[in-house]
């Protein structure tokens, strides 16, 4: 059977999708939002001034000014005048479970389960390849992300648990040594966004995550590809299930 180059290929349609113009301001805002979401920029922290920020991001000062003004409108940053002035990350800018819950409820069940499947496919493939390619150093690196490091006895926050868990999966991709899978995993984690913060408010969920992560690490250490894949699927499935249950109970109120 011959395939016509202009036949009904479904991927061809993507080529002729309109390209969004502009959007630079939104992109600058998205970067800063993402940095706050992931805890890279914290409340009270001073942002670089307009010129520095423009230089750093390779955009014009006008774009930066507009982006800062948009972020101010959202309440993500505050601006102080005077000598010690500048733009600062707002005091209540922590990734908030309330915002995450609102976002979760705005999704359909279909979106949540489909995102979960995609995440599962990529992460499990990474784990399988990682099991083939791991050495002792890799396994040691993985172990450091199984639980967030407890600082002087205080229990880890949901934010710290989420960070450790996403780093754990990224580390698996790094051990697999596939650039494409690692990039896809980063993109998926950005798509999940704050949603993954929600289950880590639940201590039981945190402990089960750590147990499954240990099982994944052990499978990778003994080069057991099938088990590494299966346990990683379980790990992602647990998140998806938690989110779907939360979604149901939130909508039934």
């Amino acid at each position: 059977m011959s395939l016509s180059p202009l036949g009904a290929s479904r991927s061809l349609a993507a080529v002729f999708t309109p390209i969004k113009s502009g959007g630079l301001v939104d992109e600058v805002c998205r970067r800063i939002e993402l940095a706050v979401e992931t805890g890279l920029l914290v409340s009270g922290q001073r942002l670089p001034n307009e010129v520095e920020l423009a230089g750093a991001l390779g955009v014009s000062a006008v774009t930066t000014r507009e982006a800062l003004s948009q972020l101010r409108g959202q309440g993500l940053i505050r601006t102080a005048r005077g000598r010690s002035g500048g733009s600062f990350i707002a005091d209540d800018a922590l990734p908030s479970p309330d915002h995450a819950r609102i976002r979760l409820l705005a999704l359909t069940r279909l979106q949540i389960s489909d995102l979960g499947l995609h995440y599962q496919a990529i992460a499990a493939t990474c784990a399988g390849v990682a099991a083939k390619r791991s050495n002792d150093g890799d396994v040691e690196a993985l172990r450091t992300y199984i639980r967030p490091r407890a600082e002087n006895g205080t229990p880890a926050t949901a934010l710290e648990w989420r960070l450790a868990s996403s780093e754990f999966l990224l580390e698996i991709a790094a051990v697999a040594r596939s650039a494409r899978l690692a990039r896809e995993l980063l993109r998926l984690q950005a798509d999940m966004g704050t949603l993954t913060l929600l289950p880590f408010g639940d201590t039981d969920f945190c402990n089960r995550t750590a147990e499954l992560s240990e099982a994944v690490t052990a499978a990778i250490a003994r080069h057991d590809q099938a088990s590494a894949e299966a346990r990683t699927k379980d790990l992602i499935h647990m998140t998806t299930t938690w989110l779907l249950e939360e979604h149901s109970s939130g909508q039934s109120h």
Binding site: R31, A35, L40, R46, P48, G55, A56, L57, G58
Partner: peptide
């Protein structure tokens, strides 16, 4: 000449 992660210079964590 894309600059890598210049925002990191303003963020001790990163």
């Amino acid at each position: 000449m894309e600059r890598v992660d210049a925002l990191a210079n303003f963020s001790p964590q990163s």
